[in-house]
Design a protein around this nucleic acid. Structure first.
Length: 123
RNA sequence: GGAGCCGGGCGGAUCGCCGCUGCGCUCUUUUUGUGCAGGAUGGGCCUUGUGCCUGCCGGCACAGAAAGGCGGAGAGGAAAGUCCGGGCUCCGCAGGGCAAGACGCCGGGUAACACCCGGGAGGGGCGACCCUCUGACAGCGCCACAGAAAGCAGACCGCCCUGCACGCAGGGUAAGGGUGAAACGGUGGUGUAAGAGACCACCAGACACGCCAGCAAUGACGUGUGCUCGGCAUACCACGUCUGGAGCAAGACCAAGUAGGGGAGGCGGCUCGCCCGGCCGUGUGCCUCCCGGGUCGGUUGCUUGAGGGUACGGGAGACCGUGCUCCUAGAGGAAUGGCGGUCCCGCACAGCCUGAUCCGUCAGGCUGCGCGGACAGAACCCGGCUUACAGUCCGACUCUCUGA
RNA sequence: CGGGAUGUAGCGCAGUCUGGGAGCGCACUUGAAUGGGGUUCAAGGGGUCGAAGGUUCAAAUCCUUUCAUCCCGA
């Protein structure tokens, strides 16, 4: 399991219950980037690797825009964030201006990896 | 060619790599259960038997699960707003009355509708065409300001007659004036003191009757009555028709699991609101509210349907019937995607070519580069309505300009 | 999924039911009183009444559609 995650995105690596979201909001460290607000919380008991949660409110835009942001975030997580040699639960909350920014995958990847590298003191 | 109007259609195409969710195959691997036959034979029980129970090893078959593999599918015309109408499900028995709400010319279509089709009337537009639709002699109201007067009777300035104290009183009149969105038919004449449907002719309308056409709304015609009668129900209201309530978080099943509590209130509670009626419960106890506690998982409902396509038939059309054919998303912190290439379309710029030219440019084509490709995401399912929308195609029609 | 409220001057609100003049307070501008400021007094400016259409002689008000914000219940 460890080392070669592959490129797949199983559902177990996503945060899916409101209890877990609430825990991340309460215990996580907050970090701001240009378009997102990150909550980084320690992993669950006996868990390894990185898990992702996304939250995009209606203030960000209509449904097509919100779905697009979530899909790009998941794609970024699948291709890059899961390979980080750490264990954590990360919740990404889209800010209001993320809706009108027409974000591409590369932009999001740079924005999030920079922030997380600073946080974990990597490279 | 330009401008417009109506109806219908499309809503970028394709390839590569990686990913997501169902479905199918059962090709691998693992595993569970059941059955069958077999091999070594271990343990236990006694009634010591060709006994019974249990365990080990691999094999085959069937069923299930997980991971991988292969195959195939995967957002819309509005999926949107949630404005109507149904299906479905439960509560329940919907029986009556009141209330409330929606709708409102006529006929038809439909499961139903506030939708659609056809017709009628009124209004707008040169026109194609578009918009609107019960009732104002059932009641109750409103019509500001201006104006004499705003609804049915009346008379400010005028006009005319009479009287006299000579600018006032009484009477007649509604032609003329001005106000207003709207002023009690219009034009011309007869008539008169002045006038007036007082009377006459024509025009417009209303009402009643008759008759014809039409299923009907309604329309045409004729006769009579001088009858001339305002608008607003998209204010209340009246009349007619319809409506039981909630909604897939409906509902059903399985699993897990705490408490069998405490307090307050009512004798009743439920049936959309109210009344009658009905049903349920009543001391080992009903109902409501609050506090406290547990669970907040899985399966199903869940996609084959008033379904799409096509041919023929019926109909003026909406639509209906019959035959053949197709299967086309089912998520759940919520899949249907990410990145890149090529092509297509539009716009702008640059260059070249061709044609026209009033030498300012204009039109078309090719190449290159850049930018852009809308509105918008299924959440039980249908039928509509409304709203948003880059661009584009097809068909019918109208007006106008020019040419033959 | 179901239900409700609000939108009027820069800000906070009334007026909407029952249709005819668009108002109130604060803020703003000008002037007066003061040596100056504050306070006070007087005068004044500022409005697509969220948007579009309809009914009406006339619409902030009535009707329909639509946009935005907010709040409940499951």
């Amino acid at each position: 399991m460890q080392g070669t995650f592959g490129l797949s995105l199983p559902k177990e690596s996503l945060i899916r219950t409101s209890a877990e979201y609430a825990l991340c909001y309460a215990q996580g460290r907050r970090m701001h980037t240009r378009h997102f607000l990150l909550f980084v919380a320690p992993p669950a008991e006996g868990d390894e690797g990185v898990r992702l949660g996304t939250a995009v409110s209606r203030k960000t835009g209509h449904a097509v825009v919100r779905n697009r942001i979530k899909r790009v975030l998941r794609e970024c997580f699948r291709l890059h964030l899961r390979r980080l040699p750490v264990s954590a639960r990360i919740v990404v909350v889209a800010k209001r201006q993320a809706g009108s920014a027409a974000l591409r995958l590369d932009d999001v990847t740079h924005e999030l990896t920079d922030a997380l590298n600073r946080y974990f003191h990597l490279s």
